[in-house]
Each structure stands twice: as C-alpha cells, then as structure tokens.
C-alpha cells in the first residue's frame, strides 16, 4: 500500500509536470507540421508566463492574465513568422533570437515594474487557475482503488490541465478531420502543391504559427498561474526544449506527443521524488541522471536506434517559387 501511495503521488505530479510540456509540444506541432521549425517554444512560453503573471498581478484576474499571455506569445510567434515566412530567414536563427529576447526582456521588465528581483508579486486565488474538484470526487474518495484514483489523479487539477488534454484530441481532430488540417499537413510536405492548388502558402503558415503562439501562451499561463503563484525568472528552465524533444519523439503526431510528454513528465517527477532515495538493485541514482534522460532518449531516437523520426519534408526550408 505504501508503494501504491507513492506511485499515485508520483503519477499525480507527473500530470502536473507534463502539462507545460504538452501544451508547448502541441504548439510546436502546428508550426512544424506546416514546415516552420520552431526552437523558440521556450522563449514564447517564458514571455507568456511573464505577461500572464504581470497582467494577473495588476488586474487580479486570471482571465486577464491568460489573455495577456496569449497576446504576447502570439506576438513573438508572428515575429518568427515575419522572419521565416515573409523574409525567408533562417528559422533556427530566428528561434534562437526569440529565446534571448524573451529571456532578457522578462527579467528587465519584471525588475522595472515590480522590483522583486525579476519576480512578479505573488498571486491570490482569484488571479490563478486553481485546482477544481470534479463532481463526485469527494463522494468516491473512499471507494478503494478506483474512487481513490479518481479523487487523487483525475480530480483536483487546474482547469488548464483538462484543457491541455482536450487539446490533444482537438489537435488530432483539426489535423486529420478538417480542411485547415489537411492544408497544414500539405504545406509542411510540399508547399508548391498547396500553391498551385490556389491556396496561399504564406497565410497558411502564418495561421500555423499563430496557433503555436496561442498554445505557448497557454503553456506559459499554466506555469505562472496554475503550477506557481507568479513569475520567477527563467521559470521555463529548458521545458521548451524538452517539448521539442517530445515532439520529435512523437514523430510530430498529437497522441504520441501526449505520451511522450507524460513520459518526460514522469522522469521529472521521479527525479524529484528520488532525490537522495536509493533505488532497489542500482542504489542511489543521481537526480541529474533523470534530468538528462529526456535529452539522451531523444538523441538515441534521432540516431535512428529506436525507429526513425522523419520531420515534415519541407520543414526548415523557406518557400520560394521556382525560377
């Protein structure tokens, strides 16, 4: 029973830790499926977190915080689009630039506006997305196993958690069941086919990066307004890159993306839980091992040792009409 409890606690924190990864990963999926590489997920998430926390702190409303996060993150996504779609710049370079701009300006503006060493003021309950208890959770709490799991694991998360999982299904639906999704996938594979079919490649790709911006905004909001009670400098701490790794791991598909993010979240939860605790058989494993594991796994995947990750064919290449 003790192991069971520990497991439930770890799984519960797995969910919490996976959500920012999942939202950012889905964000990247829209852009990369449309043929725009985005290593600026980290920056957009960070900027979103800051904007969300700042607006929520000033207004006292979580919803205003969310709106601000979406706005700022989408603006950065549009900058990326402007550079890589309109001006056919190098998408990697543009992504790197956005990460730095976000990293620097969140600290500078945070310090200038709130003077708390780059933090935003601590947020009250109204200004956050707090945990919600699902109907029947209290009643079922004492039912062994199933009820307990429902209460501990399924219920008691912030609304953004449920939103993130809903987005997995929604993204799948958009991608494979709608006109927009069809065109989005087509433009990432062969933009010339889309162009000759009379659909604007640029506008399609802009819409894709806007989707990326919005979802990164949600990821940032979750970090600052649900997982934490405010913005702390550099609070994304590489999550944008883990999300990118998860995206590759999932071979750019929404449902596997969810599982990849849960796996990486689980590793994170495990490393927190395991700090100092020896494992049976292997003894004490340094926490850094678990921290590095997502990256190592991704490299192993990229090396082609566990299946092949083939990115969208037109990814990273600016579209130029032939001639």
């Amino acid at each position: 029973m003790d192991y069971f409890n520990t497991l439930v606690v770890i799984l519960d924190s797995t969910i919490r830790l996976s959500i920012p990864l999942l939202l950012a990963c889905l964000a990247g999926l829209y852009s990369e499926r449309a043929g725009i590489f985005d290593i600026g997920l980290e920056g957009k998430m960070l900027a979103g977190a800051f904007a969300g926390a700042a607006a929520a702190a000033v207004s006292g409303s979580a919803w205003i915080g969310l709106s601000a996060a979406l706005l700022v993150s989408t603006f950065l996504a549009l900058v990326h689009g402007f550079a890589s779609i309109t001006h056919r710049g190098n998408q990697i370079v543009s992504g790197v630039a956005i990460n730095f701009i976000a990293a620097g300006s969140t600290i500078i503006l945070g310090q200038a506006w709130f003077s708390q060493g780059g933090r935003t003021p601590s947020l009250g309950a109204d200004a956050r997305f707090t945990a919600i208890t699902l109907p029947g959770a209290e009643a079922l709490r004492d039912v062994p196993i199933v009820g307990y799991l429902y209460y501990e694991l399924v219920s008691g998360h912030s609304a953004l958690v449920y939103f993130a999982f809903a987005m997995v299904a929604f993204t799948w639906w958009v991608l494979f069941r709608t006109r927009f999704g069809l065109r989005l996938r087509a433009v990432g594979e062969n933009p010339a086919a889309v162009d000759t079919a009379g659909v604007s490649v640029a506008w399609l790709r802009y819409r894709a990066v806007i989707c990326t911006g919005i979802l990164c905004g949600f990821a940032g909001t979750y970090l600052a307004l649900a997982q934490n009670a405010g913005f702390v400098k550099d609070m994304t701490a590489g999550k944008g890159f883990i999300a990118l790794a998860a995206l590759i791991f999932a071979k750019w598909r929404p449902v596997p993306a969810m599982f990849a993010c849960l796996l990486f979240g689980f590793l994170d939860a495990l490393s927190i839980r395991m700090q100092g605790t020896p494992l049976p058989l292997v003894g004490r494993v340094p926490a850094q091992f678990f921290q590095a594991l997502p990256y190592v796994l991704t490299v192993v995947l990229l090396a082609g040792f566990i299946g092949r990750a083939i990115p969208p064919r037109a990814g990273g290449v600016p579209y130029v009409k032939e001639r």
Binding site: S84, G89, N90, V93, V96, F100, G104, I108
Partner: peptide
C-alpha cells in the same frame, strides 16, 4: 537599477534577429 545586465541578453537576441534571421530585410 531598473536595467540589469540582462539587457544584454535582449540586445543579443535582437542582433541575432536582425543580423541573422532578418539579414535581407
């Protein structure tokens, strides 16, 4: 005091953006 050294990170990002990704603008 309101400008910390992180200002450089912004400038660095802007330089990468304008001298790199938008070099042909």
């Amino acid at each position: 005091p309101s400008i910390s050294r992180d200002m450089i990170v912004i400038i660095q990002g802007l330089v990468i953006l304008f001298a790199g990704a938008l070099e042909h603008m």
